[in-house]
Simulated scan of single mutants.
Amino acid sequence: MRINKYIAKSGITSRRKADELVENGRVKVNGEIIKKLGYDVQEDDLVEVDEEKISLQKKYIYLIMNKPTGFVTTMSDEYERPTVMDLIPDVEERVYPVGRLDMNTSGLLIFTNDGELANNLTHPSTHVNKKYKLLCNGILNRNEVKILEKGVNIDGYKTSPCDIKIIKHFKASTMAEIIIHEGKKRQIRRMFETIGHPVQKLERIAIGDIKIGHMKQGLVRKLSDEEVRKLKENA
């Protein structure tokens, strides 16, 4: 089994992140640092990440959280800020977040130890829809919506086409929903900044067919077998 797949199936992280661990010399096989991305792990090999022995997961866990603002989406934080892991209850296996929501964004966040699924959900080629609800400054008009839907340039990168629905206009702000399938850093906020409508509030309300519904912020629950099936179909 290729080293990145082995690490992913151990529940440590996704395949792409596993490649980074290998490249950074943080992976050992039988006591030797491995930097070859295509290295094949044998059945009796001892594999370590950051000097900690790992092995293939026997049981997969799938959780969703309604992330509150004020929490960073990392396993730990060098600045000692609260992380989403502080909200995870005790579970049988170690899980990690799939993708990220920035500190000031709330909403649906998936946690699992299924590295294959995590990789499929986050890889750009899979085009998994992510739906957000937002409140932006100013009155967003239809021409501006069309500009965003066609894609805008952010630091030399053009965003992929998206779908936007205006929900309500207030005196000096607009509530809208947006569906994207990318996951660039602060993408939605930066998109709206390009047309002069900074985002005040941002909440992810769905990933594929999985919806946050009326789940209270800060709560975590297990996905049902049917939800897991749908998630894998989306990926």
Rank of each mutant, 00 (worst) to 15 (best):
D19P: 05
R81A: 09
H127A: 07
L87W: 04
H127K: 14
D19I: 02
H127N: 15
M215E: 09
N24A: 14
R186P: 04
P68A: 03
K230F: 11
E51F: 10
S76T: 15
L37P: 06
N120L: 14
P68D: 06
A18T: 03
P124H: 09
R221S: 01
Y96P: 02
M103P: 02
K58N: 15
Y62F: 11
E51S: 15
D209E: 15
S125Q: 13
E43L: 10
E93S: 09
D163P: 00
S10Q: 01
N234F: 10
V29M: 05
K185A: 05
Y157L: 12
R15E: 08
A176P: 01
T73M: 04
E92S: 14
G213P: 01
E23W: 00
Q200C: 11
N104V: 01
G218I: 02
K5Y: 02
L140G: 01
M175N: 10
V84W: 03
K158T: 15
R186S: 07
P82M: 06
D77M: 11
K168H: 12
P124I: 09
M191K: 03
N24D: 13
T174Q: 04
E52T: 13
G115M: 07
D77P: 13
G38V: 12
R94S: 10
K146W: 00
A172Q: 14
T159I: 10
K28G: 04
N104H: 07
H181K: 04
Q187A: 02
E78F: 08
D50Y: 05
G70T: 04
K36V: 13
K36W: 03
K28N: 06
I205E: 08
L63I: 03
I61K: 09
D90T: 12
I147V: 15
L135D: 12
D114H: 10
E78Q: 12
K131T: 15
T74K: 05
P198G: 12
V41P: 09
K222F: 14
G11T: 04
V152H: 02
T74W: 06
K158P: 01
Y79G: 02
E92Y: 06
N143D: 15
G115R: 03
L21A: 07
Y157R: 11
S76R: 12
E80D: 13
R186Q: 11
E182P: 08
L140N: 03
E80A: 10
